[in-house]
């Protein structure tokens, strides 16, 4: 569904992605693991049109995304839940959710209202806090809000950048359950994680990204879990460095 080929993205002279190729198959959960600074967020931003690739191609259902503005990419069915920058803190939960449907706000009021209701059924805790500023929510609630907001765009593929970051284990489990449910409903998921243990439980396929390059691609179980964990946290060439 999403095919990334030889993507090179640089900040000035520094190439953060040095020819990344990977794929997220329709209906599956694909996981991208890698240590800090590997380039995971850079890849997500590049795919979502926030950063611009120097070279390479990203195709969503056969259509090229590189060079397209983010609005076009969202319209084609791709939504990103960014790392760390989850919500608009001084904006109410309701407006945060509505902002998720930004591109069809004026054309499809009824549809937006319907989708809003659907998200509030899925995340009842957001309904209780609907008029609160998003910044007053707990970390887990903000993560839920960010997911709900991304779903307001009716994505076919959902990109999530480290949704477990800084959350307590119980909350992380809840998030992963949600991802699993969404996937069961037919949403393709590309999940960036450092929590290899949790990610490998729900992934159908995973990649390792180290220093701007894909260094492994396979199904969970293809590598020893402790090696994956080691490489996801620390980088380096895995077993040989033990």
């Amino acid at each position: 569904m999403l095919v990334i080929e030889n993507i090179v993205t640089a900040y000035g002279k520094i190439e953060a992605l040095r020819g990344v190729s990977m794929e997220a198959q329709e209906g599956r959960i694909t996981c991208l693991l890698g240590p800090n600074g590997a380039g995971k967020t850079t890849l997500m931003y590049t795919v979502a049109g926030i950063l611009h690739a120097r070279r390479g191609s990203v195709r969503l259902q056969g259509q090229e995304l590189v060079g397209k503005p983010s609005s076009e990419i969202v319209r084609r069915g791709l939504a990103l839940v960014p790392e760390n920058r989850l919500t608009f803190p001084e904006v109410s939960v309701r407006e945060n959710l509505i902002a998720g449907a930004y591109l069809r706000l004026t054309r499809d009021k009824a549809g937006v209202a319907e989708d809003l209701e659907r998200q509030l059924v899925r995340f009842p805790r957001l309904r209780e806090r609907i008029n609160q500023d998003a910044g007053t929510l707990s970390g887990g609630e903000q993560q839920m809000l960010a997911v709900a907001r991304a779903l307001m765009a009716r994505p076919r593929i959902l990109l999530m950048d480290e949704p477990s970051l800084g959350l307590a284990p119980l909350v992380v489990e809840e998030i992963f359950r949600t991802i699993h449910e969404l996937n069961a409903e037919g949403v393709t998921v590309l999940l960036v994680e450092q929590n290899a243990h949790m990610a490998l439980q729900i992934a159908h396929h995973f990649y390792l990204l180290e220093q701007g390059r894909i260094t492994f691609s396979g199904v969970p179980g293809a590598l020893q879990e402790d090696e994956v964990i080691h490489r996801a946290y620390l980088g380096g060439s895995g077993a040989s460095s033990h």
Binding site: A48, I50, P69, S70, V74, R85, F88, Y102, A153
Partner: peptide, 9 residues
């Protein structure tokens, strides 16, 4: 960043 991610120019 999230604004851009939601399709805002």
């Amino acid at each position: 960043i999230p604004a851009e991610a939601l399709g805002v120019n």
